[in-house]
């Protein structure tokens, strides 16, 4: 004969066992690769977001197999009033100094590296004519953000695509402005732009070659150059942090 238990304890055990069982079932459904069953109960498992969110992919489901760099360039007027361009700055390479030869690196070492994917996907959401609008803003007199938004709207860019693209484009432009201002503090920038450089890694079959052979085996790099934008600087604190980082890691 079971010993009678205090009612509070019994209630606790009953509730806890039921709750934990249900929760673990929800977590299991959310943790497994997406399927029709987990999709069917998505509203019931939505409470898992954000605290119980699971993103266990220790590497992305499809591991990236290409280098991704963000480069920035500015236009300015020289002493004679002639339009000039700075050299391209590979900001991703500057950041990577925080990773190279360090067992304990810093997360600031691969920010633009990770930023490139969403930036690229927003840009790829534009169709050909919309992309021409986005990239053809002139160096001498770049479009303002409002003008660019209106031009994209006139090119029938759906609102979600337009907003997503402008959000990331503006972010990258602000970063470009900060970096270029930090590197060329005496220049008065008239326009800035960024480029995304991608190059696949050395093919697996070519991994045993010499350094030169491996370099030669890599597919050529692809470079997507964005349109000219008006310099969009961040706050003085933001600029100071970028300048400090550039000084230490360039």
């Amino acid at each position: 004969m079971a010993v009678p238990r205090p009612s509070l304890r019994t209630a606790f055990i009953g509730v806890v066992v039921a709750l934990v069982g249900l929760h673990l079932a929800s977590v299991t459904l959310a943790a497994l690769p997406p399927n029709r069953y987990s999709d069917a109960v998505r509203s019931q498992t939505s409470y898992l977001d954000p605290y119980f969110t699971q993103n266990w992919r220790l590497f992305a489901p499809s591991p990236i197999s290409e280098d991704r760099n963000l480069l920035v360039q500015a236009a300015y007027l020289d002493a004679g009033g002639r339009a000039r361009r700075t050299a391209w700055i590979d900001w991703t390479a500057v950041e990577l100094d925080l990773v190279r030869h360090r067992l304990v690196g810093g997360r600031a070492g691969y920010v633009t590296n990770k930023l490139v994917s969403p930036l690229l996907s927003r840009s790829e959401a534009l169709d050909d004519s919309q992309r021409i609008v986005a990239t053809s803003s002139p160096q001498a007199d770049p479009l303002s953000w409002t003008e660019l938004a209106e031009a994209l709207e006139a090119a029938d860019t759906p609102a979600t695509v337009r907003i997503g693209y402008l959000r990331y484009d503006r972010t990258a432009t602000r970063l470009a402005t900060d970096v270029l201002t930090a590197r060329y503090p005496r220049l008065e920038l008239t326009a800035v732009r960024y480029a995304i450089r991608r190059q696949s890694v050395v093919p697996y079959a070519a991994r045993d070659g010499s350094a030169a052979e491996r370099r030669a085996a890599r597919p050529p790099a692809v470079r997507d150059v964005g349109g000219w934008r008006r310099p969009t600087p961040g706050s003085p604190a933001e600029l100071a942090a970028v300048r400090d980082f550039d000084r230490r890691h360039r």
Partner: peptide, 23 residues
Amino acid sequence: GLLVSNFSTRDLWVGQASVWAEP
């Protein structure tokens, strides 16, 4: 360890200069 190793670049990582994390 994570916080200590990112302390010197905290402004860029999560602070005022983490503009590219905004979206």
